[in-house]
Amino acid sequence: MIAVRDLGVSRGGMPVLAGVQFALSSGEALVLRGPNGIGKTTLLRTLARLQPPLCGEILGDVDDIAYAAHADGLKLTLTVDENLAFWARVFGGGDPEAAIRAFDLASLRDRPAGGLSAGQKRRLSLARLMVTGRRLWILDEPTVSLDAASVQLFASTIRSHLAAGGAAIMATHIDLGIEGRVLDLAPFKAKLPAFDADDAGGFL
């Protein structure tokens, strides 16, 4: 579904990762691990084609991808229903009812998103993925501010998405209990050009 060959990504003009390789077919999940600042978000944004890669290539159809960022991307003055219905219409994909059931949002549907707690907003933002109808989910820290029960809801949603032939790439530090490969990004850290002390000497 997506394959990445010798990919290098940069943040703010500085290379952060180099030589990343993996391939993912339908029904598989890939979990990205690595310390803070290693470039997980940058890699995910590159995979979602929000920024161009520094080198290497990404194979796969961009129209398969649904991206969920750190930010929830909700409109606080719109209700839960209106938020979901908007994305369902934009993507022309799934059924908002199924998403509302899957993330247990039925009792909140007429509340404005601004009145939700952080965890409830997160659930709504994850429910958005279901209405996109896209096969490859790219998730950046999807479980932030979720409680244990909501993490289980999310894990079972991912499982049924994978069972239905979807795929997911996520950056997360907690164990969701999903069979998936883990890609540790630490070995792909880009080597910065050596700092030349003599050159900098005249400068300091």
Binding site: L50, A66, Y67, A69, A71, D72, L74, K75
Partner: peptide, 9 residues
Amino acid sequence: DGSLDLLAT
């Protein structure tokens, strides 16, 4: 609020 990123994808 992040919706511009989502609209771009």
